[in-house]
Design a protein around this nucleic acid. Structure first.
Lengths: 235, 235
DNA sequence: CAGTGGTCTAGACCACCAC
DNA sequence: TGGTGGTCTAGACCACTGG
């Protein structure tokens, strides 16, 4: 079938990765080195690498080089497990970094969802989350401070679901989820240290309390290769 | 921020598309023409176009050119609506084509799920689905013929959920869903008439009957720009 | 058959990274 | 400071599309 050069090169690396000759997380040779070995120009080498990136087998860190993608974590929103818990359970090491936090006036959309006046204060929280030292997820969220007074004074790098349970006797229940496969917006790409325009997974999540009030509105931007979504629907 | 040539070109087309100067489904000028207009080489023009493709704003059809992406359809698996229904409801025109159909022996995975002996016959069905004449989805499914005897003699371009309801008094109930953002496998890309390696959305779905038997195992490959997933989780 | 997108060559310069 | 990835030029040939 296709005997294009980039296609053969993809096959070459795919095999090395599947056989674990190239181990998860390890660095590929430089583009020039690969080109020399296969007598190809960098343009062709890069096409192959970019296709493998779209496939999720390799990824790049800004100007550092190409690396073999580690296994994806399985994210099951309906399990109500926190990021820290499900990442740990699957044998990875989670880490969370707070990039920004501020009280700000709710925009029309958020205000309507939370049933509060427009411009009423909400807590905006911006976090970066890691799996095994690799930044995989940018989170931007709006938290209903009326239901969670004083939450802005807590340590907001911790699991919010734990915090809600321990300090407010509240738990996540119902959720509305929207998934869209699209490229990362440049702000999120910058935060993840990758070049803009890379494929990504965008999730919008609305969390409700048991009595149907909106606790939190969440925007998540995942590296597309870092996560698999798993949902069980039981009526 | 970035003043790279491809970046500016992306901004140019993004604006035309957002202002609807370039309407949904319309064709962009040829790559050479764009290059001439902006004094750029084709390599640079193509980088901009490929980024816009990752963003989901434009798409290409094999060797035919670049087109403005129509709005995505919203797919809500928990609503149990058939493809034909939800596509129609959202103002689009659905169409289904049967590519292949055959009775074949179940592999180990399918057999275990369906609780039937390995190599027992199952119905394999391979379909292509369109929205407004545009092929957006490849479906490969394994159907439990024990629960649905004679189904292979029906018209299998129609909605399976309708067929189940009308002829077998069965309905889809519980489902297990797995989503993964990855590039399209070359077989699916060929079926969709796009070049391999394009980003895509892969869905695996297991459909259960009310009494927890596996009716059907479904593998779906979507154009990544054609669909938004929407799920409500209610415990 | 003219023009298109798909593939590829052989260079170049730059900003940034690791040493 | 040498080497890397990111960007870009100026060509080329091919397979295929559409008139």
């Amino acid at each position: 079938m296709s005997t294009h050069h980039y296609y053969q090169l993809q096959g070459y690396f795919r095999e090395l990765i599947e056989l674990k000759t190239l181990k998860s997380g390890s660095k590929l040779p430089s583009e020039r080195e690969i080109g020399e070995q296969f007598k190809l120009t960098r343009v062709t080498v890069r096409q192959a690498l970019q296709n493998l990136e779209a496939e999720g087998l390799i990824y790049r860190q800004n100007r550092k080089g190409w690396f073999v993608t580690p296994p994806a974590v399985v994210y099951n929103p309906s399990s109500h497990l926190s990021f820290n818990l499900y990442v740990t359970e699957q044998g990875f090491v989670p880490h969370t970094e707070k990039l920004m936090q501020q009280i700000e006036p709710a925009n029309a959309y958020i205000a309507q969802l939370m049933n509060i006046p427009e411009h009423a204060p909400v807590l905006y929280l911006h976090r970066r989350r890691y799996i095994n030292q690799r930044p995989v997820l940018i989170e931007k969220m709006y938290i209903n401070t009326r239901l969670l007074p004083g939450i802005e004074k807590e340590d907001l790098t911790q699991s919010l679901s734990q915090l809600l349970k321990n300090n407010y006797q509240r738990e996540y229940r119902d959720m509305d989820l929207v998934f869209k496969s699209t490229s990362l917006p440049s702000s999120a790409a910058d935060d993840l240290g990758i070049s803009a325009g890379q494929p990504g997974l965008h999730i919008e999540r609305i969390n409700y309390t048991a009595d149907k009030q909106v606790l939190e509105v969440d925007y998540e931007f995942w590296r597309h290769d870092a996560v698999t979504i798993n949902i069980a629907i039981r009526d």
